[in-house]
């Protein structure tokens, strides 16, 4: 098996203890860092799709993402700075009052592996903190909010409104989370909605294409 295929398999199966070694071997065998990165990104895309189709579960998705992260650490020094197709910045976080982050993390990982620079603000993020971060990063392309509790839907709405009214830069607002629906996303004025981590990437890419 080619070393690149082996790297792909390490990501797909989430071999967190072996991937660093395999990536190093691939580099030693002459593969270039960009090639390895592309292979990992492709594989992560497949993993996200399998998750959307309910073929794999949260643990499989989490360890694949962890494996990719560990693989990335090996090639990062080799990746010429700024190399790779960059899609721009994405600020993401879970809204105030809400501590659920599994879904948000999966979305962040997928968006990151598809080529965005992700600024993850964590959980329970007050509206003002989001706005400050947007102001610090006027080149942000996508601002993504996650909300998992029906009781924090008002915070989601407030976050979307504040972001839309913020007169900095030019970005799109993406929302998601189990209780959020396409209709609700429209109602609160978000630009995009995705129901899972796999489709979040597709929607995020569509959104920036329309900027």
């Amino acid at each position: 098996m080619s070393k690149l295929n082996e790297v792909k398999e390490m990501v797909q199966k989430g071999r967190t203890k072996k991937i660093a070694g395999v990536v190093q071997e691939a580099l030693d065998a002459g593969a270039d860092a960009q090639e390895i990165l592309d292979a990992m990104v492709d594989t992560m895309g497949d993993v996200g799709d399998a998750f959307s189709r309910d073929e794999i579960f949260v643990p499989e998705m989490l360890i694949a993402a962890k494996a990719m992260k560990l693989g990335l650490e090996v090639i990062e020094p080799q990746l010429a700075s700024g190399a790779g197709e960059k899609l721009g910045k994405c600020i993401i976080g879970t809204v105030e009052g809400d501590l659920h982050d599994i879904g948000k993390n999966l979305v962040a990982m997928m968006i990151k592996s598809s080529g965005f620079d992700v600024i993850d603000m964590g959980v329970d993020v007050p509206v003002d903190t989001f706005i400050e971060k947007i102001k610090e990063n006027p080149d942000v392309k996508v601002v993504a909010f996650s909300g998992l509790l029906t009781t924090t839907m008002p915070a989601l709405k407030a976050s979307v409104e504040a972001a839309k009214n913020c007169d900095v830069g030019n970005f799109k607002v993406l929302v998601g989370g189990a209780p959020v629906t396409e209709e609700y996303a429209d109602e609160i004025g978000a630009d995009g909605y995705a129901q899972d981590a796999g489709s979040a990437v597709t929607v995020a890419k569509e959104l920036i294409a329309s900027l």
């Binding site: 989430g14 203890k17 360890i63 993390n105």
Partner: peptide
Amino acid sequence: EIQNCLMAFYE
């Protein structure tokens, strides 16, 4: 912690 936990089933 749930994410560490879910990964631990594999790792």
